[in-house]
Computed example of a mutant assay.
Amino acid sequence: VEHGQALDWPRYSHGAYAAQQAKAEAAKVGLWVGNFQAPWDWRALHSNVDAPSSRPLDTVSRKLVSQSGGYSCEQRRYCSQISSCDEAQWYRHSCSWGRKLDWDGDGVACESLC
């Protein structure tokens, strides 16, 4: 993660590698040299493909995919770049960087919008 060869997946790591990922991103090494889409973000956006899934989406994932409203995980660094509470929550739950929008760690992103 520190060298940009892997990503911190907060859903499972609970941010254990967030500092190393931030270091790699700031240094623009490995994956951070260019633009890319995290695998879990790609899967969330393409989950409606006709191919059968090996396991069904959980309730939260189904809700997020159905509510994506065309959002992408192109990073928004500030709540001022987001137009609604629903959008902020989608980023919080769907994107690798979304937890950064939850400043006080209470599970609600961009509280000024909500």
Rank of each mutant, 00 (worst) to 15 (best):
V1Y: 03
E2Y: 11
E2F: 08
E2P: 00
A6P: 05
L7R: 11
D8H: 04
W9F: 11
P10T: 02
S13N: 10
G15F: 05
Q20L: 07
Q20R: 10
Q21M: 12
Q21L: 11
Q21W: 05
Q21T: 09
A22N: 10
K23W: 08
A24G: 02
A24Q: 04
E25D: 09
A26Y: 01
G30M: 04
V33L: 09
G34K: 09
N35Q: 12
Q37S: 12
A38K: 02
W40L: 14
D41S: 14
D41E: 15
R43I: 13
A44P: 02
S47F: 07
V49D: 14
V49C: 10
D50P: 13
A51Y: 13
P52L: 10
S54Y: 14
S54M: 11
R55G: 09
R55L: 11
D58I: 02
T59H: 03
T59L: 09
V60S: 08
V60L: 14
L64K: 02
V65W: 15
S66I: 00
G70E: 03
G70K: 05
G70F: 01
Y71W: 12
Y71P: 00
S72T: 15
R77P: 02
R77L: 13
Y78R: 14
Y78C: 08
Y78P: 00
C79Y: 06
C79R: 06
Q81S: 10
S83L: 09
C85D: 05
C85F: 10
Q89I: 01
W90S: 03
H93C: 00
C95D: 05
C95I: 06
S96P: 07
S96V: 09
R99E: 11
D102M: 03
D102Q: 02
G105H: 01
G107I: 04
V108I: 13
A109E: 06
E111T: 03
L113K: 02
L113Q: 00
C114V: 00
C114Q: 04
